[in-house]
Amino acid sequence: MGFGFLHRHRGSTAYLLLAPGMLFLVVFFLVPLGFLAYQSLESGSIDFGYAFTWAWDNYSSAITGYGTQFKRSFAYAGIATAIALLVSYPVAYWIAFRGGRWKNLLLLCIVAPFFVTYLIRTLAWQTILSDDGLIVRTLTDMHILSPGGRLLATGTAVVAGITYNFLPFMALPLYVSLEQIDQTLIEAAEDLYASKWTAFFRVTFPLSLPGVVAGTLLTFIPAAGDFINAQLLGSTTNHMIGNVINSKYNELIDYPAAAAMSFILMAIILALVLIYARAVGSEKLTG
């Protein structure tokens, strides 16, 4: 694995092929990232301007001041990812193994919400979850929700919104990894005395792990930094770190604090991903 292909094509061909992508990454990712890092260590104010002063307290005050929002972001993202996995897996499984000639149409249905913009989709959830909406009324009638209870402007609504918005990012990688599984392997497991369930847990699920990992990462990472759902479906008590960064940057024009928080968010996500990858085992992922 790795960069073995570079050795097979000694010479500059491989580097030339990589060049456009690398250049793009440097200009549009590494340079802005460096700039952001620089900005996160500045101090000053919008009126008198910001200057680079190795202001590490931007980081410490972000953690002490917004610890709750950081924790809430990861909790919401974690719950939404778990629900998305539980909902998507059976769907992806069914399409991959039983979809037959309807496979492509069913996949299109999963992607269909993307034809409407993110913002509009989330606004639609405001209507769906509104106090006089069908869901709230039904739940109240069923005594699941106490009279006067609401869904909009609660954590439940934010998690539901995140789950909904990121579901395709979970379902598609799951589908791809399930689709690649040779059905004969499942027959072989059953031939070797595994019941349908045992065959699933011993063969199908382990072989779909690359899809599970890709799906959870594609859902969890953007969800942890999301602010649209909390802004449109939650109240201030449901704000995530994305909302804080957004307001620091766009409303308070406190660039250093926003930059520092972005870095903390990035660092935590990176750490969690590494722990996750370790726990799942990279050996299993490469098959």
Binding site: D182, T184, L185, E187, A188, E190, D191, Y193, G287
Partner: peptide
């Protein structure tokens, strides 16, 4: 009876070894 309850084992054409 389902396959897993039969005292029969199969060598598949594609071998079907579990890759993981």
């Amino acid at each position: 009876l389902p396959a897993y309850k039969r005292d029969v084992n199969t060598v598949f054409q594609s071998y079907a070894l579990f890759p993981h």
